[in-house]
Simulated scan of single mutants.
Amino acid sequence: MIYGAMKFSIGGPLKLAFRPWVEGIENVPAEGPAILASNHLSFSDSFFLPAVLDRKVTFIAKAEYFTSPGVKGRLTAAFFKGVGQLPVDRSGARGAGEAAIQSGIKVLERGELFGIYPEGTRSPDGRLYRGKPGGLARVCLATGAPVIPVAMIDTEKIQPPGKVVPKLMRPGIRIGKPLDFSRYQGMEGDRFILRSLTDEVMYEIMKLSGQEYVDVYATAAKRQLAEQQKTSGTTGPTGPAEK
Rank of each mutant, 00 (worst) to 15 (best):
S103D: 10
G104M: 08
I105E: 13
V107I: 13
E109W: 00
R110H: 12
G111C: 09
E112D: 15
L113I: 02
L113N: 08
I116T: 09
P118I: 07
P118F: 11
E119H: 09
T121C: 07
S123P: 10
P124E: 02
G126V: 11
G126F: 12
R127G: 02
L128I: 11
L128V: 10
Y129Q: 12
Y129D: 02
K132V: 07
G134L: 11
G134T: 13
R138P: 01
V139M: 12
A142K: 14
T143R: 09
A145Q: 01
A145H: 03
A145D: 03
P146M: 08
V147A: 03
I148N: 02
I148C: 02
P149F: 07
P149K: 05
V150Q: 04
A151L: 06
A151D: 03
M152W: 01
T155M: 10
T155V: 02
I158L: 09
P160H: 06
P160C: 07
P161Q: 06
G162V: 08
K163T: 10
V164G: 00
V164R: 13
K167C: 00
M169E: 12
M169Y: 00
R170G: 00
P171K: 02
G172T: 05
G172I: 07
I173V: 14
R174P: 01
I175V: 05
P178I: 07
L179S: 08
L179A: 05
F181R: 06
F181L: 07
R183M: 12
Y184P: 06
Q185A: 14
Q185H: 11
G186L: 10
M187P: 00
M187C: 05
E188L: 13
E188W: 05
F192L: 13
F192G: 03
L194R: 09
R195E: 15
R195H: 09
R195K: 15
S196F: 01
S196E: 15
L197Q: 02
L197R: 04
E200W: 02
M202D: 04
M202K: 09
Y203Q: 13
E204A: 12
I205H: 06
M206I: 05
K207P: 00
G210Q: 10
Q211V: 04
E212L: 11
V214K: 12
D215P: 10
A218F: 06
A220L: 13
A221L: 05
K222W: 10
K222H: 08
R223T: 11
R223S: 14
Q224D: 15
L225F: 10
Q228P: 01
Q229C: 04
K230C: 00
T231R: 15
T231I: 12
S232I: 06
G233P: 09
T234L: 14
T234R: 15
T235E: 14
P237S: 09
G239E: 03
G239T: 01
G239P: 02
K243C: 00
